[in-house]
Write a protein that binds this DNA or RNA. Structure first.
Lengths: 358, 358
DNA sequence: CTGTTAGCGCTTTCAA
DNA sequence: TTGAAAGCGCTAACAG
């Protein structure tokens, strides 16, 4: 299988390791430098020599060591580091897809880490990424702890773009969804329909979007001289099942809400489950009649696979996770490749669309 | 901000670049070797010197260059390369989460690439990953072209685990879902209920799981001396909207199916949409009566967020994408860390669960 | 406990 | 058009 000297360490170097430029050079009867030249496009190399080198590369199964390569000054690592708070959440997965798409267009690979909403883990990930000499970072800041480790002056000159959430005291390029307006408009629509007892289901307030969406909910009320009803505001549901429980509790109140604004898709799905369960119970008790729970009005932030098939009347504040990822990556490559390197941080907010599900 | 000589290139080396062990050593008044020792745990270094070095590290914002580090023989890159066919598909996103989880437990990072079902892109990704000296590869083989580039002898000794799909002529560790059995059992259940005109909605047959799930569908028929009805078998729907179209066509046949087996969640969702649309049309024409489409029986491979709220009676073949990712990663680290390195490739099939949605 | 030397694989000079 | 030398940042091996 190998070329010659079956067992002995050829050249005094350990064998059975990856082939190097040296090995390729030897086999092609040229110097390592010529191999290097062929590998970077073959400028100033006789075509015949190029072919000889390429043959040796193929025969040896040679792969240029990118790590060694990136060691030379002026060479880029070709890597972008991305940390998200929950890889398994389809929303961030979609966002990651957008990042990958743009990175790929720029011939970069993405290193992916899951911070799991843990600031310390996020700090470690970012440090590791910098150690690997990523050219830039895209971070969905975790919703816990401080974010000092994300401050541009702590990153050794590696540009960073925050996505989906801003972070306190971090003055960096940021791409956000227009949470406040989305929540405000949705709530305003419910108020315009005459609802006065509107529930709010949302994330912890330490999560940036959680706070912003509650702000929008409040603003819409204020615009009519109203205040949200405290007992109808439930925060801290991170997953579908806790949202379902919270919604079930709301429905069991002496004076239950007539409408619900849910601040993310996990809460929306949980709310739907709770409502459907109540409908079933009501139908069992009063067969044939329209269950009272059917009149409940639901407006949710985010969409999901099946939103238009919801068994409960539903409207959504729609936005595009993939576009979020794309824009974040574009901002990063702007910094990387344009001379506008020193421009002050930009914050952009992507618009949302209110959508009535059929 | 910097230490001394504000502008002049200190030490003859270019300034304003990342600090190196050398810089840290100088600032701490020790040799680079001592810095290296402190950074790798501080064995055999006076505690007082350790503190001095750590102080210098912090002040300089030093990050050890992992690429340079991995250059030394015997050092591992700490990277695992993962290619999936569609990052944005929640199923693979979930799988990626499982891979990341296990990789993280083993202190490894994941490099992620999207092959987009394109064999050539996949080949490039794998070559790039090997060039970056990943310690192992986890690949969901693309459903197009040949897979020669995945053969273990072409990977320069980097271990590979195939996930979710096998690849022709590639004899490697593989983790699969038990597609054949899942599809067989689901189809058998429909046949046992008395259905004889069962539609099949699925992927292209060049996609491994597509072929296997159709095999299971066939086997269940054969076990009863039956054959699938050709005009009811629709292949090649890759997304929800094409699945909806295919299902709509089936429903418009002179003799439509009485039951449907859909081979993945995209097709299931498309089928549900088509059925719901037909129900609505039938209700408009004959208000008050139970629409004929409501009697249609649906059995789908994969679950999704809202499966239990489906407006159409639904059963699913459930399986765990996250577990698939975990197991693939575990197999990889088995190869990497155990001495069982030379064992012949293993193929494991993860069980599925048949689940009646309430 | 600490420093010196050497070299990992690659490519940018510079010289031939 | 080609090659030799040097060094990117790091750490084993060997002094001291």
């Amino acid at each position: 299988m190998t070329t010659s000297e079956p067992t002995a360490p050829r050249n005094g170097r350990r064998r059975s390791s990856d082939p190097t430029v040296h090995d390729v050079a030897e086999r092609a009867g040229v110097s390592p430098m010529t191999v290097s030249r062929v590998l970077s496009g073959g400028k100033n190399v006789r075509i015949e020599v190029q072919e000889r080198v390429e043959k040796a590369v193929a025969e040896l199964g040679y792969h240029r060591n990118e790590n060694a390569r990136s060691l030379r000054p002026g060479q880029r690592s070709g890597l972008v580091g991305v940390t998200i708070t929950n890889i398994a959440n389809p929303y961030y997965a979609e966002m990651l897809g957008g990042v990958e798409e743009v990175a790929s267009e720029h011939s970069r690979r993405i290193l992916v880490g899951n911070s799991n909403e843990d600031a310390e883990l996020e700090r470690q990930l970012v440090a590791d990424f910098i150690g690997r000499r990523v050219e830039g970072l895209i971070v969905v800041p975790s919703g816990s702890g401080t974010a000092d480790h994300l401050r541009p002056d702590r990153l050794g000159g590696v540009p960073i773009v925050l996505a989906s959430r801003a972070a306190a005291d971090v003055d960096a390029d940021t791409v956000l969804i227009d949470d406040v307006n989305g929540a405000r408009q949705a709530t305003a629509a419910l108020l315009a329909e005459g609802h006065r007892r509107i529930a709010f289901l949302g994330n912890r307030l330490s999560v940036f979007t959680g706070q912003r969406r509650l702000d929008g909910f409040r603003l819409a009320h204020q615009a009519r001289g109203l205040t949200p009803i405290d007992e109808l505001v439930r925060l801290g549901q991170q997953d579908v099942s806790s949202a379902e429980i919270a919604m079930t509790e709301l429905l069991a109140l002496p004076s239950p809400p007539t409408a619900v604004f849910s601040a993310n898709n996990r809460n929306t799905i949980g709310a739907i489950r709770a409502i459907v369960n109540l409908q079933r119970r009501q139908l069992e008790q009063n067969p044939g009649t329209e269950p009272a729970a059917s009149r409940l009005r639901l407006f949710g932030f985010d969409t999901f696979d099946f939103a238009d098939m919801s068994p409960v009347q539903l409207s959504v504040v729609d936005h595009d996770a993939r576009e979020l990822g794309r824009r974040a990556a574009q901002m990063l490559f702007d910094r990387l490749e344009n001379t506008s390197n020193s421009a002050s941080p930009r914050v952009i907010e992507l618009p949302v669309t209110l959508r009535q599900m059929p």
